[in-house]
């Protein structure tokens, strides 16, 4: 999981709140009905009483890891390591973002956004991504319609890019895993497959709609 906190905080967002409201409503009503039918009201009552404690426990479990990686990655940012690594990705990203102005503000924000995501810098990645989107909207005159490159940026950001899934590793460790990171190859493989499908599909549809637009 890209333990970007923007994703964990999703329920705070205005648009997300609509979904979450229905979710809260449905879970309270459905649980009550099911508990009455299944005769599991006592268990339900206990879980209401204990769940908030579990949430505190979970926060405490993750607190140390989150703080530690926040500290490590701040050093990586300040020392210029993140910027240095981002230079490696430029040539690849040039291929994905067709017709983009390579020296423009949008492209450099895109490169930094994707590098920050790869390094698990969720806090830094989101503002960079938003900056990139605004710059793209201006450079490509979007006028309220997503351009091909904007779609590419969003699709890449909806994929999990984080190379080191520290939250998953921490939870696995605290729940008794003998080698919490032994799932890393599987995670990276699965994430790479998902990203490849998303990016290829975006490139294909972008290409088709561009040709149609010209014809």
């Amino acid at each position: 999981m890209n333990y970007s906190f923007h994703s964990i905080l999703s329920c705070k967002h205005e648009k997300g709140e609509i979904n979450i409201k229905y979710f809260l409503f449905l879970s309270a009503v459905l649980s009550l009905i099911f508990a009455a039918v299944n005769g599991s009201a006592e268990g339900l009552s206990n879980s209401v009483l204990s769940a908030s404690q579990d949430a505190v426990q979970l926060t405490l479990t993750l607190l140390g890891t989150m703080a530690f990686w926040g500290g490590v990655m701040r050093i990586a940012e300040k020392s210029g390591l993140v910027r240095k690594i981002s230079a490696l990705f430029r040539p690849f990203l040039k291929v994905l973002f067709k017709g983009i102005n390579e020296s423009g503000e949008a492209f450099s924000a895109i490169v930094m956004n994707i590098t920050a995501n790869l390094m698990g810098l969720g806090n830094a990645a989101t503002p960079l991504g938003i900056k990139a989107m605004k710059a793209l909207a201006e450079e490509e005159h979007s006028n309220g319609t997503a351009t091909g490159n904007m779609i590419m940026l969003v699709v890449i950001n909806t994929a999990s890019l984080q190379l080191l899934p520290t939250t998953v590793a921490t939870l696995r460790l605290t729940h008794g895993s003998s080698a919490p990171l032994d799932v890393l190859p599987a995670i990276l493989f699965s994430a790479a497959c998902a990203l490849t499908v998303g990016v290829t599909l975006t490139l294909t549809i972008n290409g088709i709609s561009k040709r149609k637009g010209r014809g």
Binding site: K15, A137, T145, T158, P165, I187
Partner: peptide, 22 residues
């Protein structure tokens, strides 16, 4: 592996397009 290889899609879409007024 699911947790590590996927993201909160709808939230990301809402935030990014909201910012760019799309």
């Amino acid at each position: 592996v699911i947790m590590g290889s996927t993201e909160t899609t709808f939230y990301t879409v809402a935030v990014y397009y909201g910012a760019a007024k799309v």
